[in-house]
């Protein structure tokens, strides 16, 4: 897998754009999921995930081919999402929570044309609840928790992606877990 990626990167370095399509195809779900779990919004997540791939392409010559490509790519994506949270403007999206309501999104204002079975709705609601609680975490805990429990990366890799010491990663994971324990214990 890594060997295939390296081969494609070398082709991209020679200027072959179509080889990059394969790289995008391989990592798109991982990167989109990472962005979605950090941002909690599909539209923003798609924007950021696309932006991450474009930045990776433009800066591919600065990528050290001896390192793991995914680490580098996740780092670009995570940084973009963190920046996005920090200078977040009040955008309005359909799946953003309507203020003053408890978990209602603009989607609930639109009549649904498909009727979902009871248990599917329940599991969807649970998913939404969990995602909402993740999004409530302070941004520095949110990114480590997503990288650790959703992308299932090692503490060392997380430390590399976020460019922070291993000790800091551990502390943030402990605090993030504490916050989630508190938020999710009654679910």
């Amino acid at each position: 897998m890594e060997a295939l990626i390296k081969k494609r990167i070398k082709q991209v370095l020679k200027g072959d754009q179509s080889a990059y399509g394969e790289i995008v195809e391989i990592y798109k779900d991982k990167v989109f999921q990472l962005c979605f779990r950090i941002l909690g919004n599909r539209h923003e997540a798609e924007d950021m995930a696309q932006e991450a791939f474009i930045r990776a392409y433009v800066n591919i010559s600065s990528f050290n081919i001896d390192l793991k490509f995914s680490t580098w790519l996740y780092r670009i994506a995570t940084n973009l999402c963190i920046d996005r949270i920090r200078k977040k403007k009040p955008d309005y999206y359909l799946d953003a929570e309507v203020s003053g309501t408890d978990g209602l999104t603009m989607y609930s204002q639109i009549a649904s044309d498909t009727i979902l079975p009871e248990d599917e709705i329940e599991s969807l609601e649970l998913q939404e609840t969990i995602q909402r609680e993740i999004t409530k975490l302070p941004e520095k805990y949110r990114s480590v928790i997503v990288l650790k429990y959703i992308e299932e990366l090692s503490l060392n890799e997380i430390s590399e992606i976020l460019d922070i010491p291993l000790g800091t990663v551990k502390t943030r994971i402990h605090r993030g877990r504490e916050a989630l324990r508190h938020q999710l214990r009654n679910v």
Binding site: V24, F32, Q33, E46, Q50, Q127, L180, R181, R185
Partner: peptide, 27 residues
């Protein structure tokens, strides 16, 4: 339980046409 709940969030996929959209935006 908190960890299990976070991990249970089903794996979501990138929207369709994601790759095409990226490729169209490349220089």
């Amino acid at each position: 339980k908190a960890i299990a709940l976070v991990q249970s969030t089903s794996h979501i996929q990138a929207p369709s046409n994601f790759t095409e959209n990226v490729m169209a935006r490349l220089p």
